[in-house]
Design a protein around this nucleic acid. Structure first.
Length: 807
DNA sequence: CAGTGAGCGAGCTTCCGCTTGACTT
C-alpha cells in the first residue's frame, strides 16, 4: 500500500475511499488525537507558555495503529478539515506519528464530491504552521481562563463549580434576560377590530391607533353607534418573499426545535445517523455554501417536479463573522431521495433538511398585498382591512420558515379579501375593543440561546449542543415549568347599536422548556462580571478571534498574544483570590413576626435556603426553597409560608397525613410512605379529603403496575415501567432479557439476573460516598481514578440527556 | 428519593473543540 489518507470522520473516510479507489487507503483519526495534559504541567508559563501535549487516553490504541500504517505507506495524506482545528489535527498527527516532511502531504477540500477530492490530491501543500499557532493560542487561552477562573469560584462560591470563555457568557445571557423579564411591567392597550359582511364573506378591519384607556376605547365605540362604513381607497402593492439559505448547524437546531420540538441533543443525534447512512452532508458546519454538483442536482429535481419557472439556482455567502466554512451547508446527498426511513423522527428531520435545501434553490414567491381604507360616517378616522394573495408560490410550495421565538407579532391577520371597489358601502356586523398586554422579552430556548451565541461568535457548531447541555448539567440554568397566571382581559363590543362590556380571563406566562437561571447561576455570573468583566464581556471572544486571525496571518507570535493577555489576567486572579468576599447571595428579607428574628435567604451547601435566625444562633430554622422561588426574587411572605410545613392535613388509617415540600416537589408523608402531589394540587391549601384521594390513587397505580410479587421475599417485585416490565430488587432496577415472559420468572431467576446486573460498587462507592472514606480510595492507582472520573462524568451527561429527551 | 444545610480540613473539582461509541434509564 502506497498512499494513506487520514480524514477526521470515519463516514467521510468511507465516501472518499469510493472516489479515490484502490491506490489509496482512506482512514480516520476521529478528531483531535492529542490535547494539553490534564495536570498542572499542561502549560509551562515560565518557559514561554510551552504547551505539554499528550495523546488522549481514548486515542492511544488508534494512534499506535495509525503509526504502524503510516510507516508502511510511501505517502501520508493529511486530509483533516481546512480550518484552525483541522490544521492543528494535521500537525498533531505529524508529531504523534513522527511523519517526515518528505512523505507527508496536506490536502484540503470543502465538500465531499469527486471533483473536489481529485482536485485536492492534485494540489497538496505543507502544514500551515501559522494556522496551527492560532489554534494553540485558542487552546492555551481557553485552558488558562477555565482553569484560572474555576478555582476562584471553588474558594469564593462553592466547590466543583466551573467557568469558561464560552459557558460563562452563555449563562450570563440567560441571567440578564431573566432580569429584563423581572423588570418588565406589562402595559395594556385596546385594539379596535371591526367585522363587515361582504356578500356573505367576513372582512375584518382594524384601527391603526391603539387606545391606552378603557374610557378612550369606549368613547370611540360610542361615537361609531349607527355609523355608515364605505371604502374610500384601495391600494395593491406587489411584494416578494425569498427562501432562507440552506441549513447550518445552528439554523437546523433552531428549526428542528421550533417545528419538531426536538432538543439540540436529539437533533444532532438524528442528524449524525442520517450522515452516517450517507443521506446528508456533514451536520456540524457553519457554512451556507452548496457545491456546484448539489446546485445542479437540486435544479434538475425542481424542474422535473415543479417546472422550470420554480428553479432559481443560487449560492449563499455566510454572514456570520466567525464562520470558518470547512464544509458545505447541511443538505441531502441525493435529491432524488425523498424520504429517510429509519424512524419517524429521522424521517421528519430529513424532510426538513430536504425541503429547506430545495427551497433555497427555488424562485421567490410573488405576493400581492391589498389595503382597503374604510371611512366611518360619524368620525374622521379610517379603518384598514389588509389582505394578501399569493400570485406565485415559488419556494413556498415546499417550505415556509417558522417564526422566531421573540417575534412579538400577533396571529397572522392578512388573508384574502373578497373583490372590493372604491365607494362600496359595507354591511356592519360588529366592532370590538379588546385589551392586549405587551409581552415581556421571551426566555431563551436551547435553540434561541445557540442563535444568540452564534451571533456573538461564541462557540462552534460542534460545541453548541454540548455547551447548552453543560450549563444545565452544572445547574447554572434549568427549565422550570411555569403554570402561568390568570389575568383579566377587558373587551368592549359594539353590536346592534349598543356597547357591551365583558371581562374574560386569559392565562399568561405559562412555560415549559424555557431556560432560566438558577440561584447558583446568578450568583456565579454576578461574581464573574464584577471581577472579570473583560472575559465576561460579550465581545471578548470576538476580540480574541481577531488576534487569532493575526496569528494565522503570521503577523503576531502566538506566545506574544498569550503573554499580553495573561499578565493582567493573572493579576486579576490574584487580587480576586485575596480580596473578594465569599458569595452566598444572602439577602435579609425582614423580620419574622412570630419570633421577632431576622429572615434570610442564601445559598447553602445543598442549595438555596430560607432561614429564621442568625447563622450562629443555636436554634435557627431552615427550609429549602422550592418550585420557582429564587433567592433574588422571593418575598418575606413567601419565605414565611415555607415554615408552615409540615402541615398536618388530616388522619387516615389512624396515621396523620403531613403535607411537605421536598427536593422533588410537594408530597404527603403518611405512615412512612411518600406520595407525590400531582401538579394540580397546591401543598399550601390541600385538605385531608383530597389527601386521601391522592394516597388511594397512588396505591391503585402501584397495584396496576405490579406484575408479580413473591410472598417469600417482599424485596423482589416484577413491575411495569416506562420501557416495559422490569424487576425491582431492593433499590436496584433489573432489566429483563428480550423474549422472556416477565410474569413467568421465578424468584431464583430474578435474583440471578439482579446479581448479573449488579453495579460494580466498590470503586464507585469509595469515590462517591462520604469524604472520610476517600483517604483510602485516593491511594489507588491513577488509572483507576480516571476510570472513576469518567464514569461519573458520563453519568451526569446521561442524566441530562435523559431529562432533555423525556417528553 | 423524601429532610439536611457542619467539620481541627486531605485531596478533589475545572476549560474548549474535534470525533464516535456504549449505554439504555
Amino acid at each position: 500500500m502506497k498512499n494513506l489518507v487520514i480524514v477526521e470522520s470515519p463516514s467521510k473516510a468511507k465516501t472518499i475511499q469510493k472516489y479515490l479507489g484502490g491506490e489509496f487507503e482512506v482512514t480516520s483519526c476521529m478528531g483531535h488525537i492529542r490535547d494539553l495534559a490534564g495536570n498542572d504541567k499542561a502549560i509551562d508559563i515560565a518557559n514561554n507558555f510551552r504547551p505539554n501535549y499528550e495523546v488522549s487516553e481514548d486515542k492511544k490504541k488508534l494512534v499506535t495503529d495509525l503509526k504502524k500504517r503510516a510507516k508502511q505507506a510511501d505517502i501520508v495524506w493529511l486530509a483533516s478539515d481546512e480550518d484552525r482545528e483541522g490544521e492543528a489535527i494535521a500537525w498533531h498527527l505529524v508529531e504523534a506519528l513522527e511523519l517526515s516532511e518528505a512523505k507527508t502531504k496536506r490536502i484540503v477540500f470543502h465538500e465531499i464530491t469527486k471533483p473536489a477530492i481529485v482536485k485536492a490530491v492534485q494540489n497538496p501543500r505543507g502544514i500551515d504552521k501559522n494556522l496551527v499557532d492560532a489554534q494553540q493560542a485558542r487552546r492555551v487561552l481557553d485552558r488558562l481562563v477555565g482553569y484560572g477562573l474555576s478555582p476562584v469560584l471553588w474558594r469564593k462560591v462553592q466547590a466543583k463549580l466551573s467557568a469558561g470563555r464560552v459557558q460563562s457568557v452563555a449563562v450570563r445571557l440567560v441571567v440578564e434576560r431573566e432580569r429584563e423579564i423581572q423588570a418588565f411591567s406589562a402595559t395594556s392597550q385596546f385594539k379596535i377590530v371591526a367585522t363587515f359582511d361582504v356578500d356573505g364573506k367576513v372582512v375584518t378591519a382594524e384601527h391603526p391607533k391603539r387606545f391606552h384607556t378603557e374610557e378612550g376605547a369606549r368613547a370611540f365605540l360610542d361615537s361609531c353607534i349607527g355609523a355608515q362604513y364605505s371604502i374610500v381607497n384601495l391600494e395593491t402593492k406587489p411584494s416578494t418573499k425569498r427562501a432562507s439559505p440552506p441549513f447550518t448547524t445552528s439554523t437546523l437546531q433552531q428549526e428542528a426545535s421550533r417545528k419538531l420540538g426536538y432538543t439540540l441533543v436529539r437533533t444532532m443525534r438524528l442528524a449524525q445517523d442520517l450522515y452516517e447512512q450517507g443521506l446528508i452532508t456533514y451536520m456540524r458546519t457553519d457554512s451556507q455554501n452548496l457545491s456546484e454538483l448539489a446546485i445542479e442536482a437540486a435544479k434538475q429535481e425542481i424542474v422535473s417536479s415543479f417546472g422550470s419557472q420554480y428553479s432559481s439556482p443560487r449560492n449563499y455567502t455566510t454572514k456570520v463573522a466567525s464562520a470558518q466554512e470547512a464544509h458545505e451547508a447541511i443538505r441531502p446527498t441525493d435529491f432524488a431521495r425523498r424520504k429517510a426511513v429509519e424512524s419517524d423522527a429521522h424521517a421528519k428531520l430529513y424532510d426538513l433538511i430536504y425541503k429547506r435545501t430545495m427551497a433555497s434553490q427555488m424562485s421567490d414567491a410573488k405576493l400581492e398585498r391589498t389595503i382597503a381604507a374604510i371611512s366611518i360616517s360619524s368620525l374622521p378616522d379610517t379603518l384598514t382591512a389588509t389582505g394578501e394573495v399569493i400570485v406565485f408560490d415559488g419556494f413556498l410550495r415546499v417550505y415556509s420558515e417558522s417564526r422566531s421565538d421573540d417575534d412579538q407579532d400577533d396571529e397572522e391577520t392578512s388573508k384574502m379579501l373578497p373583490p372590493l371597489r372604491v365607494g362600496q358601502d359595507l354591511v356592519f356586523q360588529s366592532m370590538s375593543a379588546k385589551e392586549r398586554f405587551e409581552r415581556p422579552p421571551a426566555r431563551y430556548t436551547e435553540a434561541s440561546l445557540v442563535k444568540a451565541l452564534e451571533e456573538l461568535g461564541i462557540g462552534r457548531p460542534s460545541t453548541y449542543a454540548p455547551t447548552i447541555q453543560n450549563i444545565q448539567a452544572r445547574n447554572y440554568v434549568d427549565k422550570p415549568e411555569r403554570e402561568g397566571r390568570k389575568r383579566d382581559i377587558r373587551e368592549l363590543v359594539l353590536q346592534h347599536d349598543a356597547v357591551s362590556r365583558r371581562v374574560h380571563q386569559e392565562t399568561s406566562g405559562a412555560e415549559k422548556n424555557k431556560l432560566a437561571p438558577t440561584d447558583i447561576g446568578m450568583i456565579v455570573t454576578d461574581f464573574l462580571v464584577k471581577h472579570f468583566d473583560n472575559i465576561m464581556d460579550y465581545n471578548f471572544t470576538a476580540n480574541v478571534e481577531k488576534q487569532f486571525d493575526e496569528i494565522a496571518q503570521g503577523m503576531v507570535r502566538w506566545t506574544e498574544m498569550i503573554r499580553a493577555f495573561y499578565g493582567p489576567f493573572e493579576a486579576e486572579l490574584r487580587r480576586t483570590s485575596e480580596t473578594a468576599e465569599r458569595q452566598s447571595g444572602e439577602r435579609l428579607l425582614g423580620v419574622d413576626p412570630a419570633s421577632g428574628k431576622n429572615v434570610y435567604v442564601r445559598l447553602a451547601r445543598y442549595g438555596p435556603i430560607a432561614q429564621i435566625g442568625e447563622a450562629d444562633d443555636e436554634v435557627k430554622r431552615q427550609k429549602g426553597l422550592t418550585g420557582t422561588l429564587k433567592i433574588e426574587t422571593i418575598t418575606l411572605e413567601e419565605a414565611l409560608e415555607l415554615f408552615k410545613f409540615p402541615r398536618t392535613i388530616g388522619l387516615f388509617e389512624e396515621h396523620p397525613m403531613d403535607a411537605k415540600l421536598g427536593r422533588f416537589g410537594p408530597y404527603i408523608e403518611h405512615n412512612k410512605a411518600f406520595y407525590s402531589l400531582p401538579k394540580e394540587d397546591n401543598p399550601y391549601t390541600i385538605d385531608g379529603t383530597r389527601g386521601v384521594e391522592v394516597i388511594l390513587a397512588r396505591r391503585q397505580k402501584i397495584e396496576e403496575n405490579t406484575i408479580k410479587t413473591f410472598p417469600e421475599d417482599d424485596n423482589v417485585k416484577i413491575l411495569k415501567g416506562r420501557w416495559g416490565p422490569f424487576i425491582k430488587v431492593g433499590k436496584q432496577n433489573v432489566r429483563i432479557p428480550k423474549d422472556t415472559d416477565a410474569a413467568s420468572l421465578t424468584l431464583e431467576e430474578c435474583l440471578q439476573l439482579a446479581l448479573q446486573q449488579a453495579p460494580q460498587k466498590p470503586v464507585k462507592a469509595a469515590a462517591a460516598e462520604n469524604t472520610t472514606a476517600k483517604k483510602t480510595a485516593v491511594k489507588k492507582t491513577a488509572v483507576k481514578k480516571t476510570a472513576v472520573k469518567k464514569t461519573a462524568a458520563k453519568k451526569v451527561a446521561k442524566k441530562v440527556v435523559k431529562k432533555a429527551t423525556k417528553k
